[in-house]
Write a protein that binds this DNA or RNA. Structure first.
Length: 237
DNA sequence: ATGTTAGCGTGCCTGCCCAC
DNA sequence: GTGGGCAGGCACGCTAACAT
């Protein structure tokens, strides 16, 4: 279980994965004195759709899901946020309200930087703006891929695709670059269904099929991928 | 130790889409 | 029009985790 830690930005492990990696010591001190670190327990909401952003959030440790509610009140998970990634950047830059809910998937520590301080830093470092543009482009690419997948793939294919995606999310940092190594995915079936865009029962049935086909193993709530190549084939990747 | 709750798994039924 | 496949929804039972 994650513990609350409030490091100086100079010592922040997550910073090397963020757009703030190029900041010099003086500016790190400035960032450090203008950030507020908050510890959230699993399942807590960081911000709600409709709220006006007053700054940005940077995830220090833990995992966060960004989700939207459909017309019928059904949740759709649109993205995961990992340590070092920024949260709420699109709404802040677009000067719009948040369009999604941010909820912790596990105990997490989040740093909040008010928008004045954030824009002061980005104005001084054009490279950060470049990094943000790159990040937003990547998010757009992912959204387009997801849209295509939802429109053209069957639930079975989408589930395989998302299991492979989650495998990367849940990999420990030290084996992150290993293609074949698998992780234990610990996510409620309901959340999995909300990512795939289907019903919980359908996910349970398909997971059971995958298990019988020896593509995965299930230990309680843990899902472990056994046949990465097989899942790739099903997902048509 | 016991009761409660949340999550998981399964069966059954229904609706939609497509091929014939 | 009909049958088959796919997917969703509802109901129910089981189990593990949690609270008292």
């Amino acid at each position: 279980m994650a513990k609350f830690i409030d490091p100086f930005c100079t010592k922040c492990e997550a910073r090397k994965d963020s757009c703030f990696y190029m900041l010099q010591n003086g500016d790190l001190d400035f960032l450090n004195s203008n950030k507020v670190s908050t510890f959230y327990k699993k399942g807590q909401t960081i911000f709600y759709a409709g709220r006006t952003p007053t700054g940005i959030y940077c995830l220090l440790n833990g995992k966060i899901k960004l989700s939207k509610l459909g017309f019928d009140g059904k949740e759709q998970i649109v993205r995961f946020v990992l340590p070092g990634q920024l949260l709420g950047i699109r709404a802040l830059i677009a000067k719009r309200s948040y369009t999604a809910f941010a909820t912790t998937l596990e105990d997490s520590t989040v740093c909040f930087i008010d928008k004045e301080s954030f824009f002061k830093i980005t104005n001084k470092y054009p490279a950060i703006t470049g990094c943000l543009l790159s990040t937003l482009s990547q998010l757009l690419q992912e959204a387009e891929d997801k849209m295509t997948s939802m429109a053209q793939k069957h639930v079975r294919e989408r589930l395989a695709e998302n299991l492979l995606f989650l495998n990367n999310i849940y990999k420990p940092v030290d084996i992150k670059n290993s293609v074949e190594t698998t992780a234990s995915i610990i996510l409620p079936r309901e959340d999995l269904a909300n990512i795939v865009g289907t019903a919980t029962e359908t996910v349970i049935r398909l997971l059971s099929d995958f298990k019988n086909e020896k593509l995965i193993s299930i230990e309680g709530r843990k899902i472990i991928l056994k046949d990465i190549a097989g899942l790739h084939k099903i997902a048509r990747l």
